[in-house]
């Protein structure tokens, strides 16, 4: 009799090796990014209320334990950034107007963009804080 055996990868596929696990971490960055977005949304909410309420929330956000969380979230956010930039050349069409764009160029451009946006944001906030 013909009785084929079922050997499909189950839900634990991401534990099979290191590269699966890195992909799992990449997908998990979304949980930390969502958490930071919600915390920021609440900061905007408190900004619309009186100074005391706002500062109480800000001090919670800046509590040492929360800062530890922010640093972990930052590590995950950077993993999203790096993994996204590194796979972008594969996800884009190989040719633009009949020419191959070198992957290193695409990756470099993205990191340049990241640096520019980050610097602008820093300067803007520091400027408002200093004046």
């Amino acid at each position: 009799m013909n009785r084929p055996l079922d050997r499909r990868l189950g839900w634990t596929w991401w534990t099979r090796n290191g590269s699966y696990f890195r992909i799992f971490l990449r997908e998990a960055t979304s949980a930390f990014i969502l958490a930071e977005v919600v915390l920021f949304m609440l900061l905007l909410h408190k900004a619309g209320q009186d100074a005391e309420t706002y500062l109480a929330y800000r001090d919670f956000l800046w509590h040492p334990l929360m800062v530890v969380f922010h640093l972990v979230a930052l590590a995950f956010a950077l993993w999203h950034t790096i993994s996204f930039f590194l796979i972008a050349p594969n996800a884009l069409p190989g040719q633009v107007a009949g020419r191959r764009i070198p992957a290193a160029f695409i990756i470099g451009q993205q990191f340049a963009g990241l640096a520019a946006v980050t610097l602008l944001l820093f300067l803007w906030v520091a400027w408002v804080g200093a004046t």
């Binding site: 013909n2 084929p4 055996l5 079922d6 050997r7 499909r8 990868l9």
Partner: peptide, 9 residues
């Protein structure tokens, strides 16, 4: 082992 994800004959 045989390739995973495929039924084994």
């Amino acid at each position: 082992e045989p390739l995973v994800n495929f039924p084994v004959e």
